[in-house]
Design a protein around this nucleic acid. Structure first.
Length: 293
DNA sequence: GGCCAGGTCCAAT
DNA sequence: ATTGGACATGGC
């Protein structure tokens, strides 16, 4: 995979794609296969160079936000000592520019769910109603556009649960052009406009603003962020989401969204690593077993 | 086998 | 303006 290569300093493909903002990728070794809109592509990072097929440099620049001044982002966030661990954990992590409709649908599906399940739900929708895509010998499906997707009953058959109704209604609003209008609005108004969509309230709206519309000040408060803020910034005291958002805006300003993504990725990664690591009891048990034989 | 999940909505204070 | 429970499934 070399046909297109582009220079990408202060960028980390793995952290960027695997930080939970995007659900349309698979990995084999260091090579990622991904779908964004109607584009199926493969991409790999070699140092500060990106190699790709199915994607040109212009597309990668846009989708991967290579135009963000990450040196400035990291320098400004690093003034906050409580972000150091999260920043050091994933240097080069960038916020993507996703397709607004795909992002809206994915984060409606994220409600009371988890990343493996969301990924599966999105893949099911694509396989069922999306346009077929090819790249050499590779086949995949685009995420279905508004109008291509099934009705609520059809969506329920894909095991979306109560999210089926939300997605069906969101599709109608998207068909009416709501998501294009939002691009023109200042962030607060865009947020209110998104929250007209059933299934989109504060948290999901902030995800869409951050991951699809480049509103880097948006600060989605989910269970992970709630917990990491409580533990790290509020001495374990419970704080209402509204106050957490206000805190983030006050503390990190127009980069609150970047702070959020570094904190989210770091807290989630370290928590999962702890969960998967053998407990001290298991280690003791294992040692005892090995000495028995 | 339960608990809880990248929440939202609605009804009852 | 806040608060609690229902919502459909499935990871772990």
């Amino acid at each position: 995979m070399v046909p297109v290569s582009t220079y990408a300093p202060l960028f980390d493909l793995r952290h960027t794609l695997e930080s939970g903002q995007f659900f349309r990728w698979t990995r084999e070794g260091d090579a990622y296969t991904a779908v964004r809109g109607l584009r199926l592509f493969r991409v790999r990072q070699r140092g500060t160079t990106l190699e790709a097929q199915g994607a040109d440099a212009w597309f990668l620049q846009e989708f991967l936000s290579l135009d963000h001044d990450l040196a400035d982002v990291e320098r400004r966030l690093r003034r906050d000592r409580k972000l150091w661990e999260a920043l050091d954990f994933a240097p080069g992590l960038r916020l993507l520019r996703q397709d607004p409709w795909e992002c809206t649908a994915a984060f409606i599906l994220s409600i009371a769910s988890n990343i493996p399940r969301i990924t599966g739900n999105v893949a099911d929708l694509a396989r069922t109603w999306g346009s077929p895509l090819r790249l050499g010998g590779l086949a995949a499906h685009a995420f279905p556009r508004p109008g291509q997707i099934g009705d609520e009953a059809g969506l329920r058959r894909l095991r979306l649960g109560f999210r089926a109704k939300y997605l069906a209604q969101a599709e109608r609003l998207a068909s009416a052009g709501l998501l294009e209008e939002i691009a023109q609005l200042p962030t607060e108004e865009a947020r209110d406009a998104l929250m007209v969509v059933p299934g989109v309230a504060e948290k999901v709206a902030d995800c869409i603003l951050l991951f699809a519309y480049g509103r880097l000040e948006a600060f989605p408060v989910d269970t992970w962020i709630r917990r990491v803020l409580r533990e790290r910034f509020f001495r374990g005291r419970a704080v209402p989401d509204r106050a957490l958002r206000a805190f983030a805006t006050e503390r990190w300003g127009d980069l609150a969204g970047y702070a959020q993504q570094y904190l989210y990725h770091w807290s989630r990664s370290t928590a999962l690593a702890r969960r998967n690591a053998p407990s001290p009891a298991q280690l003791r048990g294992r040692r005892r077993c090995t000495t028995m034989y």
